[in-house]
């Protein structure tokens, strides 16, 4: 809210992306709609994105946040590649969050590689939008 007062036109931009070949889109769709309704500008790129495409899109769209939706079990390697890609493009300021079916024991590993937060099944979308707003305004 403070952010909005400071600058009426400032909008938080979020890229919702599905890396890899996994085609389960329900979570990504629900989050995309939910973040839109929370007032964010959401860029949705659909299925079968390579990590390189995701990094390129994030750079061109200059998003504040990348939300990766992964249900295939490949979350560790895919998240790692996105974060490395951002690093090589001087874009480490872009926040990466991950959602999907993520075993509890993998969450600390994801955070150690630079993922800001992990949202598993049952998370309300409002929790995700609150997290994003708080992270952006504290930056």
């Amino acid at each position: 809210m403070d952010q909005k007062k400071m600058n009426m036109e400032k909008k938080i931009r979020v890229l919702v992306a599905k890396p890899g070949l996994d085609g389960h889109e329900r979570g990504a769709h629900v989050v995309a709609y939910g973040l839109r309704d929370a007032g964010f500008e959401v860029i949705y790129t659909g299925l079968r994105q390579t990590t390189k495409q995701i990094v390129n899109t994030a750079i061109q769209e200059d998003v504040d946040v990348i939300g990766l939706s992964i249900l295939s079990g490949a979350h560790l390697s895919l998240s790692q590649k996105v974060i490395e890609g951002l690093k090589t493009q001087d874009a480490e300021d872009i926040i990466v969050i991950v959602g999907g079916i993520i075993p509890e024991e993998d969450i600390p590993l994801l955070k150690a590689m630079g993922v800001c937060e992990v949202f598993t099944a049952g998370t309300p979308v409002s929790a995700i939008s609150d997290f994003i707003s708080a992270s952006i305004s504290s930056n």
């Binding site: 890899g20 070949l21 390579t50 295939s72 490949a74 390697s77």
Partner: peptide
């Protein structure tokens, strides 16, 4: 595997990690 399901071979760019 998803590579096969999506009509790719194991040496495709899309196959990486899958």
């Amino acid at each position: 595997d998803l590579v096969t399901q999506c009509g790719y071979d194991s040496d495709s760019d899309y196959a990486e990690g899958e």
